[in-house]
Nucleic acid binder design. Sequence first.
DNA 1: TAAATCATTTAACAGTGTTAAGCAAATATA
DNA 2: TATATTTGCTTAACACTGTTAAATGATTTA
Lengths: 208, 208
Amino acid sequence: MIYGVNKMASKERIQRLKDETRINILDAALQIVKEEGWQALSMRKIADVIEYTAPIIYEYYANKEAILLELARKGYLLLAKDLRAAHEQHALPDKQLEAMWLAYWNFAFANKELYQIMFGVTTNCCCEEINKLEEAVMPWDLFTDVIGKVMHIEDPSSDLICTKYYTFWSVVHGLVSINLLSRGSSDEINRQVLTDAIVGIIRSIKPD
Amino acid sequence: MIYGVNKMASKERIQRLKDETRINILDAALQIVKEEGWQALSMRKIADVIEYTAPIIYEYYANKEAILLELARKGYLLLAKDLRAAHEQHALPDKQLEAMWLAYWNFAFANKELYQIMFGVTTNCCCEEINKLEEAVMPWDLFTDVIGKVMHIEDPSSDLICTKYYTFWSVVHGLVSINLLSRGSSDEINRQVLTDAIVGIIRSIKPD
DNA sequence: TAAATCATTTAACAGTGTTAAGCAAATATA
DNA sequence: TATATTTGCTTAACACTGTTAAATGATTTA
């Protein structure tokens, strides 16, 4: 009986180690990508970092794509968190909306590699799989809610709200993408484009 | 002497065949990409299509990247042509600007694969190399010229023009990217976002 | 102590881009 | 015409890639 308890504890300890390895794999992958870019990521390099051989990884992730997918998932959760935090920091819908898109912008550059795989910027991101991820989605409800409030529209499924949401998203994602391609202009122009667009769209959607 | 002439003609014939093979390689590559996507493109597959073995390709292109680069270059030339055509079809700067961005939009979906490699949408496009390409650039002069006319600004190097140019580009490229990721909405909403944005920006930049 | 399970590695396969060596036909030279 | 030389092309190889199966050695179970 005493042994039974020890056995349980041992199993738990082993489980904890396994959980840790699962995390280590993700961390190693992200570290490699940050140092050498997405193209340089390989199973054997991950194995090197976590001090195992490559086949071990397949006991934690079905394949390489599953690792990319998990990193993307992590990215979406992080982005959603940032967006909700930005939302909560303001009371006025106008300010909430502005803060959310600024948070989106900041997320993209603070987590460049995650952004790349989340939205396929200069990397082939197993798109179809990502589109199936539940979490791999912008916090749509949050945006439509705030946009609706700014526009004073009740129906959150309105095409008008949808149109405005995509207008915001397009301009911000577009500017992010262009900059991640090193095709952007100065920081000053970026700031100008970003705030002009956000403020401009908000003003244009307000009922006169 | 007669032989000398024949020799020349023979050399020219051989050169023509070589030129043709160089083109065939590009065509084969694009064909494969259109059928199976960028990720499926390989030197051996190209060789299969042109009915040679893989090492032959290296007599025409330094490496795989050089092929991608050449395809991107072709894309930029094609896009520039479309944009200039759109420009020429109108007299009023407002209409010219609108037509140009609509042409950009149409190009993206008519040449999806080229657009992907030109702007790194869901594919790793040897970015740095592309940024060094002379032709790999939007017809900046054309855009700034037209935008300047709409704004009634003389100085084409104005930061204001630059800002507006990036605003246009961001929203259009962003919307294209989102749709190439299958993250877009309906065609109707796309049209709405696109024309609303273009018309909206034009209106906003016109001197009151 | 013997059997069974587990963790981990080595070896292998099919694919990738790329280069070097080889071969056979066409051409140039004597 | 006979002999070199160049040309066009292929086969073989290298170092990678993701991935799987077999082998090994330690740990746990009976």
